[in-house]
């Protein structure tokens, strides 16, 4: 509303990365549907980067990128970019209109599914991005409620929220997240890969919690935890939520 028509800003977002290990046109739609069904709330409308990095050189030529994008969209995903496109697919990838990203330095971890997850489909791995962990730890302190539609990110350190985090709001930190109020939205700690990061809150009613790329959705929270003071930490490869 004020004078400039727009501002260009840099911003960090957490995105789902679909790593394509091989593309079997007949199998792909079914495998993807299965994967999405495990956590529909997470995948509905979520931006996705498709990484072609793991494709072997000879597989590369055979992939029908347009068809694959259609399958992704049919499942409610929103592909936004390809990463590490092999030489043979460059022009086909450009034609899709998506952005092309260079090969990622990120060492993402497989996305943690809710407890009832089916065994992993071998061809499709979903992970989130990580970068090297910084040792500088400034803390960001928020004193007002974080409202639906708002996103707060504590870059390089911890986040302290002295108020509730509403449903539809998202708080992220490279370090720990402390919420001295109710957590009804999404909280993602250690978003750049710090596996020792934790989430603490006074009233656990989250839509989604994540530490270093391992996710849990609200339906995975048991009655012993729900609406109670709780902490979330990463125990090996398993996200554990315990009462405080």
């Amino acid at each position: 509303m004020s004078s400039p028509d727009f501002l260009l800003k840099g911003s960090t977002v957490t995105v789902v990365v679909l790593e394509l290990h091989q593309y079997v046109p007949d199998a792909f739609p079914g495998l993807l549907a299965e994967r999405v069904a495990q956590a529909p709330a997470l995948f509905q409308g979520s931006p996705v980067v498709i990484s072609l990095e793991p494709l072997s050189a000879d597989d590369g030529t055979a992939v029908d990128l347009g068809g694959m994008l259609d399958h992704c969209r049919d499942q409610g995903l929103r592909p936004i970019a390809f990463r590490a496109v092999p030489e043979a697919l460059q022009s086909a990838a450009t034609d899709t209109g998506l952005a092309l990203l260079p090969a990622g330095g990120g060492r993402g971890k497989p996305l943690e599914m809710p407890a009832e997850s089916a065994p992993e489909a071998p061809e499709i791995k979903v992970r989130t991005e990580q970068q090297p962990v910084s040792s500088v730890r400034p803390t960001r302190t928020i004193t007002r409620p974080v409202r639906s539609g708002q996103q707060i990110y504590a870059e390089g350190g911890d986040l302290i929220v002295l108020a509730p985090v509403s449903e539809g709001a998202e708080v992220l930190a490279d370090g720990n997240i402390h919420i001295y109020g109710a957590l009804r939205g999404r909280a993602l700690a250690g978003v750049h890969g710090d596996a020792s990061a934790r989430i603490f809150c006074q009233h656990m009613d989250a839509e989604l919690i994540s530490v270093a790329g391992h996710f849990l959705l609200s339906d995975a929270l048991g009655d012993s935890i729900l609406r109670k003071p709780a902490q979330v930490s990463l125990d090996g490869d398993v996200l554990s939520v315990s009462a405080l």
Binding site: M1, R144, P145, V146, R147, S148, G149, Q150, S166, E167, G168, A169
Partner: peptide, 14 residues
């Protein structure tokens, strides 16, 4: 309530 929460966020930012 959810919409009120959103409008409160807009008051804080816009």
């Amino acid at each position: 309530v959810r919409d009120s929460d959103r409008i409160l966020g807009i008051l804080q930012s816009k």
